[in-house]
């Protein structure tokens, strides 16, 4: 597990599949090899009014960690992350009388997964309740675990591959955590940040 940077790629006036096509051609030209598909999904549950002040639980799955269910509990003042095994999904079903999910908020990002050297590149098409919202590009540099050390290197890689659309600053979530050891839950935080933005945006998502 290395440092992962998640960034949105503007579709401009192309459709989603066209954009994915453009990006996959670019990455293949750089010498990447496709290694299957990936999927990150997010479902949001809100507490019923009887439980007091409203709390939100985001339950996420990442195909990179297939045996783990990540959940983030938002209490309003803070966010509590939790990594559990697959049984957590069943537990949420049992608690459906306390936490209800709105089906139209189910967000997911899926698409091809590429490997190039020690990098892993994922080109995700984001849909919120099966409406296309935008493109998320995930780049992981697997050997390094401290974001501050490899940020410049990742920025160079992203700019080489996304051109001017590449990020110039680290993701907001990572900015306070640049010196800490990176873990999979940090990737989940970044996905949730983007999914929340996509849900709020009408129609096709814009670059934040």
């Amino acid at each position: 597990m290395g440092v992962t940077i998640l960034t949105q790629f503007p579709t401009e006036n192309r459709t989603g599949p066209q954009t994915i096509d453009v990006l996959s051609k670019r990455i293949m030209a750089l010498g990447a090899v496709q290694q299957g598909q990936f999927l990150v999904d997010c479902e949001t549950y809100t507490s019923v009014p009887q439980l007091g002040p409203q709390r939100t639980v985001h339950v996420l799955h990442n195909s990179e960690q297939p045996a783990t269910v990540f959940s983030l509990l938002e209490t309003g003042s803070k966010t509590i992350p939790l990594a559990t095994d697959g049984l957590f999904d069943l537990l949420m079903m049992k608690m459906s009388s306390f936490y209800t999910s709105k089906k139209q908020t189910k967000a997911e990002s899926k698409g091809p997964r590429y490997e190039i050297g020690d990098f892993c590149v994922k080109l995700g098409t984001v849909t919120v309740s099966s409406n296309f919202k935008g493109i998320l590009v995930e780049v992981e540099y697997k050997p390094c675990v401290v974001p501050a050390m490899c940020w410049d290197l990742l920025k160079e890689f992203l700019q080489g591959f996304l051109g001017l659309s590449g990020p110039t600053n680290p993701p907001t979530y990572l900015q306070n955590r640049m010196q800490e050891i990176y873990s999979p839950i940090d990737t989940i935080h970044q996905y949730l940040e983007h999914f929340t933005l996509f849900r709020k945006s009408p129609g096709i998502g814009m670059r934040p």
Partner: peptide, 14 residues
């Protein structure tokens, strides 16, 4: 500085 220092000659990281 394996990941943080750029190459002395080409000034690139990668």
């Amino acid at each position: 500085t394996l990941f943080s220092a750029p190459c002395k000659r080409c000034a690139n990281h990668l």
